[in-house]
């Protein structure tokens, strides 16, 4: 048919799946090997950092749903992370049994997601960011002003989660716990990307007008995106508190929200691999600066990196890698 451009290379779109499957198998084997190698080969400190990368990846995947996919800029994301973390932290003093906590975190996150989503439905871009920022500040303020319960800005220690021989603050145990939610979050996001819900989000991000003309329920889609992102962040925060054993407001303030945003943009919005790369960046690079003794240099470098990405790789690292593959002629399309 004439409307289709002539192509130099014949396309066989529906046979591509087989080649992809081999690639996916290879990646799965490589990732499993790396996952096993980390606790075997690396020291306690490195394994602990790897667990943090996985926890932050869950929260970053959450922000990627609402911002990367549905296009709603949220600066309250670290607050949802904090919501989960403080649920874990306060469960000890308040005597909330362990088996109730995951359900509680999910319920609180759903409620939080709705509270942030509903007033912001008609907003977009900068104004949306500002209102979500307000919710973020409100969370900080609430933590700071409930000194007796939360220790305010001093933070509070969190007793480990123990189930039989399992202790969430043991190195390998923490690594396992983080692995479980990271795997769960990644699989859920992957399925989201395959589902109509995921495509709805992309449609809303790219054009609300066109989405409506296709019958996409825009309000419903935005609220769902906020709720899912809040649940991801809440779950990550809950595990974070049990693994790290200490929570304080600085981990969940505006800067933390901005770092999550950096992670999404740097890795590549709307890409699962992107969220993982972004999370590795926001956890590992500050650690490196700490190790060499210049922790304050990270924000400077971070700003520079962000500018470079915005200028040269607007699609983030994942698309950058795809471009390089294409340049080298390794691209199979």
């Amino acid at each position: 048919m004439r409307l289709v451009p002539d192509l130099a290379v014949p396309h066989r779109p529906f046979q591509r799946a087989a080649g992809r499957r081999h690639g996916a198998l290879f990646s799965a084997v490589a990732l499993t090997a790396a996952w096993l190698a980390i606790p075997v080969l690396l020291g306690q400190y490195e394994v602990f950092i790897a667990a943090q990368v996985m926890i932050y990846a869950v929260a970053t995947l959450g922000l990627d749903i609402v911002y990367g996919r549905a296009g709603q800029l949220s600066l309250a994301h670290a607050s949802f992370f904090g919501l989960g973390a403080y649920t874990a932290a306060l469960s000890g003093p308040l005597g909330i049994p362990l088996w109730v906590q995951p359900e509680l975190v999910v319920l609180l996150a759903i409620a939080g997601g709705i509270i942030v989503a509903v007033p912001t439905l008609r907003l977009s871009g900068l104004r949306l960011a500002l209102v979500t920022l307000l919710f973020g500040e409100l969370f900080d303020w609430a933590i700071d002003h409930s000194l007796a319960l939360t220790g305010g800005s001093q933070g509070m220690t969190v007793a480990p989660m123990t189930i039989g021989p399992f202790n969430s603050q043991g190195t390998v145990d923490a690594y396992l716990l983080a692995s479980i939610i990271a795997l769960g979050a990644t699989l859920l996001t992957r399925q989201l990307a395959r589902s109509q819900l995921g495509r709805r989000m992309l449609a809303v991000r790219d054009s609300e007008l066109a989405s409506a003309s296709l019958g996409v329920p825009i309000v419903h889609t935005k609220i769902t995106a906020f709720i899912l992102s809040a649940v991801f962040a809440g779950a990550a925060g809950w595990v974070y508190a049990y693994v790290v054993g200490f929570v304080s407001p600085t981990t969940f303030n505006l800067f933390a929200s901005v770092y999550f945003l950096v992670a999404v943009i740097l890795g590549g919005a709307g890409r699962i691999t992107g969220a993982w790369l972004g999370s590795a960046y926001i956890v590992l690079v500050p650690e490196v600066f700490n190790l060499v003794g210049y922790p304050n240099l990270f924000p400077v470098l971070g700003g520079g990196v962000l500018i470079a990405i915005a200028l040269f790789l607007p699609g983030g690292l994942v698309e950058g890698a795809a471009l390089i593959r294409a340049q080298l002629g390794l691209h199979r399309r």
């Binding site: 048919m1 004439r2 409307l3 289709v4 451009p5 192509l7 014949p10 396309h11 779109p13 529906f14 591509r16 399309r333």
Partner: peptide, 10 residues
């Protein structure tokens, strides 16, 4: 039907 199959994955 619309002859788009050859570019379906572009």
């Amino acid at each position: 039907d619309l002859g788009l199959l050859p570019i379906a994955h572009r």
